[in-house]
Design a protein around this nucleic acid. Structure first.
Lengths: 356, 356
DNA sequence: CTGAAAGCGCTTACAG
DNA sequence: CTGAAAGCGCTTACAG
């Protein structure tokens, strides 16, 4: 039979004080804390030692205290077998910042209703509520976000999400400026015919798209041919590459490195090489571990500052938790990206220009 | 100002029933659950929908319910930057099993008192108590284990730990049989002079040592020369290798692959090669990612079934939690290991035998 | 089948 | 400086 834990009342009885005195001593941030005499404090500490008292976090939360629990809701595995998980770098940043801010991490694992999508609400219950606040990664369900907002549950989204019913707090990568920088660099080297290819059309894609158009607008004032479409990696065949290149496109922006790699491979098979015949760049560094090391090093791409984003999310969420009783605007933070690689962008060949 | 969440009392009022009826409906495992009429049930569900009611987990825990929270206490980073963390494969198994058993994972991150060691108890408070039970990895502090036992907090240790005050529940790898198998294989190939080198002397080392002696005992009935000592990788210099080999030792067991690799390298520098001049094996597969791929493939070594161990820990802990009000013996489980590689073990050369 | 009530172990005004 | 008391939102006997 499991023994009953000692409670504050037990401690109080042993120390010869009231239970609230014990509570006040245990809560240094409370306003009465300084009023307790050193003598009382020592008696209580001694009783705590003697009984092996430990606080009951559930009772503390219920009574209005905090658990210092930071929830992490991932729409996927936090510990994928291959260790190259998309989310891993965010989690590194989150864990590190949680340690600094003195939070434990609560990983919600059991929200998969068998539909392949993890849901926050099941049976009408918000699982997140046991944590003081939560960081959300990869959640696509905007309804659930809207409901969390309505409940005024403190949360921070990693990645950008625009929801209908008002602003949510998020930390995002600056895809706008990253994309703009890369395309401007290409256009400075003479490229005029551009292509923009994405895997999914989501809020991040919209930012990249805006950056793409901003670069077009500021770098070229006469008309420019450009292609823009949604693609899967499987669709990037040699035939597709020929179509794109024969249309005169020489500056290619792909959402994912794997798509850029597939294009370079497809083009090679029809005798076109990079950067001689075309320049190419990726607008993220996702799943880089699955590409050859050389590609990972040479391909021009946007590096998503995942560690910094994870850490920033913890900072922001801590702020929301601390201020949870004040009226509060959403905090939205955009973190600068860096651009790596270099050898997949070059000047436009003279022949190309003559042809074009 | 944060809105107050609706409570069961609010739901009850709207549905025109008592608060306990709402609770009974929300707890399908409770004994009164079947007694509620379908009509009442529907009224209550409708009220829950309308109010957006969500249960308060802290209140539920306090009142004796369960949170289905499984704590994970790691003496290190759960999300190491290099992604080759020692603990990662355990966590993969734990996460997967937590999903199956419907637990969320609570990662205790904030127990580092700045001493480089994470502690369960701080300020006399057991942080683990918010979780229904916890899995412990890499905890060296036997005092804390003893205290957890005294409190009858449900926990499972990953790795073997013998504590003074009784048995703890653990899941361990079968280093005994793994070591015995490897050394028997070496001795079957003619090796008689053996060396056993370890990095730390802990409970796992003791198991390996027992396996080592078991193999010696069963394979050779006359006297045998053997070396046994504690080592760091740094100490494995060419001079050290010469000493060992010149002493006639031909069968070498190293705790870690890195130690085995260092020995093979050191030996190569003094002109001795494996498996011609000696056979070598590692008694774990820790930190394999840092060794050359070829070494990782060829070196004979014990593969620790980390995924299976993590999953088994969750199963066991779930059992302890379910049975927490019954008297309970500790559950101790040893999981078979496999042995990989092969080309670092060979027959003893005739010259060696003549020399020896 | 359903409700009134005790109790889980805390925090926090409030009263002295 | 310290204590008595209300209340946080549930679960679970208990009574009907």
């Amino acid at each position: 039979m499991r023994k009953k834990q000692p409670t504050q009342a037990d401690v109080a009885k042993l120390a010869g004080v009231s239970q609230s005195t014990v509570s006040i001593i245990l809560n240094p941030q409370g306003k009465d804390h300084l009023l307790i005499s050193e003598e009382t404090r020592e008696k209580v500490q001694a009783a705590i030692q003697e009984l092996g008292y430990v606080i009951n976090p559930a009772a503390r939360t219920l009574a209005g205290g905090q658990n210092r629990l930071m929830g992490v809701f991932i729409n996927g595995s936090a510990f994928p077998l291959d260790q190259h998980g998309f989310y891993h770098p965010y989690l590194v940043g989150i864990e590190e910042a949680c340690i600094r801010h003195d939070y434990d991490m609560l990983l919600f694992t059991r929200s998969d209703g068998g539909e392949g999508v993890r849901r926050i609400y099941r049976n009408g219950l918000n699982h997140l509520r046991i944590a003081d606040g939560s960081i959300l990664l990869g959640l696509e369900n905007k309804e659930e976000l809207a409901r969390l907002m309505k409940e005024e549950y403190p949360f921070v989204f990693i990645g950008k999400r625009e929801v209908p019913d008002g602003d949510i707090s998020y930390v995002a990568a600056d895809y706008f400026r990253g994309t703009q920088t890369i395309l401007s660099r290409m256009m400075a080297l003479g490229h005029r015919q551009t292509g923009f290819f994405y895997r999914l059309y989501n809020d991040a894609t919209k930012d990249r798209e805006r950056g793409y158009h901003a670069a077009l607008a500021e770098n070229y004032h006469s008309s420019v041919t450009h292609m823009k479409r949604q693609l899967t990696v499987q669709e990037i065949t040699p035939a597709f590459c020929r179509d794109v290149l024969d249309a005169g496109v020489t500056a290619i922006l792909m959402e994912e490195p794997a798509m850029a790699h597939a294009f370079a491979e497809g083009a090679r098979q029809i005798g076109r090489t990079c950067p001689d015949d075309f320049s190419i760049a990726a607008l993220s560094d996702n799943d880089l571990a699955y590409l050859p090391t050389q590609v990972a090093q040479e391909l021009v791409m946007i590096n998503i500052p995942k560690l910094a984003m994870g850490a920033a999310a913890v900072h922001m969420l801590n702020q929301l938790i601390v201020d949870r009783n004040k009226a509060h605007d959403a905090i939205q933070m955009t973190i600068p990206v860096t651009i790596s690689g270099g050898s997949t962008i070059g000047t436009v060949r003279v022949e190309e220009e003559l042809q074009g």
